[in-house]
């Protein structure tokens, strides 16, 4: 895996912890801040952060169209929290806010509440064995509606929290904030395939 170049979108948000997680897995992370940098990577992580900030920067610096095109043409992508919001079809709670409109689900932002309601949980994740996976939810989005082409890999409190569609993976929680790297490993295995 050490010849893989995994990009981390470093416009705003929790990019540092994703880079640390990738390094622990023996992968060299690449910072992505420009459209042209998308040509030199084998996969991309869109981190958590503020989706309103990230979408604005994607649009203003001419990355939005190139990013959509790359992912549509098969660049594997993993979005966490705000990253999941960006990959969604649309936002029920904020219908005016744009997304990348790439995966077949809709979300509602901050649907589990404000920071005081942020929580830890353990998840049963399909394909990651019997050992539950620790997950941190921070002002998390909730998936409100899913299409038939979507694979639900984990449910929490009745809602999907980890979903896959082809080479796109999205989580409403933050696997990068725990020591358990199995979700990142799952993304890497999607790239190697």
């Amino acid at each position: 895996m050490d010849d893989l170049a995994i990009g981390v979108l470093t416009l705003q948000g929790g990019f540092d912890k994703h880079m640390e997680a990738l390094k622990k897995l023996g992968v060299n992370p690449v910072k992505v801040r420009e459209a042209r940098e998308l040509d030199a990577i084998d996969g991309l992580i869109i981190p958590g952060g503020e989706s309103t900030t990230i979408i604005r920067l994607l649009k203003n610096f001419g990355i939005y169209d190139r990013l959509r095109e790359k992912i549509e043409n098969g660049l594997p992508v993993f979005g966490t929290c705000a990253g999941m919001i960006l990959l969604s079809k649309g936002i029920d709670s904020h219908p005016g806010q744009e997304t990348l409109d790439l995966m077949d689900f809709r979300v509602s932002r901050n649907d589990y509440g404000r920071q005081i309601d942020s929580f830890d949980a353990t998840l049963k994740i399909e394909g990651l064995g019997d050992e539950p996976v620790p997950a941190v939810f921070i002002r998390a989005p909730r998936i409100t509606e899913i299409g038939s082409s979507l694979e639900v890999l984990s449910l929490y409190d009745g809602s999907p929290v980890l979903v896959r569609q082809g080479t796109m993976l999205a989580a409403s929680f933050h696997p990068e904030l725990t020591e358990d790297l199995r979700v990142h490993n799952l993304f890497l295995s999607m790239i190697v395939q």
Binding site: Q12, G13, C81, S118
Partner: peptide, 17 residues
Amino acid sequence: SAQWKKNVGLAEMLKGG
């Protein structure tokens, strides 16, 4: 505590902002 870590997690999300 898990509480503190979760709160540092929110601070992580504000980076670069």
